[in-house]
Design a protein around this nucleic acid. Structure first.
Lengths: 108, 108
DNA sequence: CACGTACCTAACCACTTGGTTATCTAACCT
DNA sequence: AGGTTAGATAACCAAGTGGTTAGGTACGTG
């Protein structure tokens, strides 16, 4: 699977997005991350592995803890990808787009 | 499933992203959309249903054709979501962020 | 009417996903 | 050494996904 696909796939789960949101406040252990959720440890472990494979988190090791840190670089690609569609949802951008097209037409 | 989740899930497949890219050039029939891909009609139909459920396309009906049109509005939510993480990948933004935090500290 | 074209639905298959419980390793603390 | 805590792994299950083939519907045309 390509980078963008695995990033989108990782983001498709609300639990994983909540984990990312939590990590914006700083690194956390697996236990801390699992606190807000009513699911088992192994389930969290699986989510973390998905996030790690997508390159969205990195994991260290300190004694018996395996602290997770956010790595947002894959999200830049997501933002860039979405921005390419801005003119299709943004009305003012659409008008600008139409203007530019018109100008191009006039050049011919 | 919430809106953002189903949007991300829809975008996780390269075939579906390619279909969206094709639709930026204007509406297309199912046949036209399936042309670039080496998969069966029903497979395309399934992809289109996923995109439709995610609100990324709308479908009309003209005689025996069911033309698809792009609807990018769910992508705005994606862009906004990703932008909230910009400071975690953008070095200059991170520096600005640190500066603002420092200023806040000084206010106390 | 008969035929071809565009598209959908149904049934099926292999694989993945999100969850579980049970069991293991590794580190810390008495 | 024994017990507790953090975490991973394994085995399992139900549901979902991405693909297939076969068959059905709706429309335009000879």
């Amino acid at each position: 699977m390509d980078q963008l696909s695995s990033t989108f796939a990782a983001l498709a789960d609300p639990t994983r997005r909540a984990i990312l949101a939590r990590l914006t406040e700083g690194p956390a252990t697996v236990k801390e991350l699992s606190e807000p959720f009513d699911i088992s440890g192994p389930a969290i472990s699986k989510h973390l592995r998905v996030l790690e494979k997508a390159g969205l988190i990195t994991r260290g090791r300190e004694a018996q803890w395996r602290p997770c840190r956010l790595d947002a670089t894959p999200l830049e690609e997501v933002a860039v990808w979405a921005e390419n569609y801005r003119r299709f949802w943004d009305a003012s951008y659409a008008r600008l787009d139409a203007l530019l097209t018109e100008m191009k037409e006039n050049e011919k």
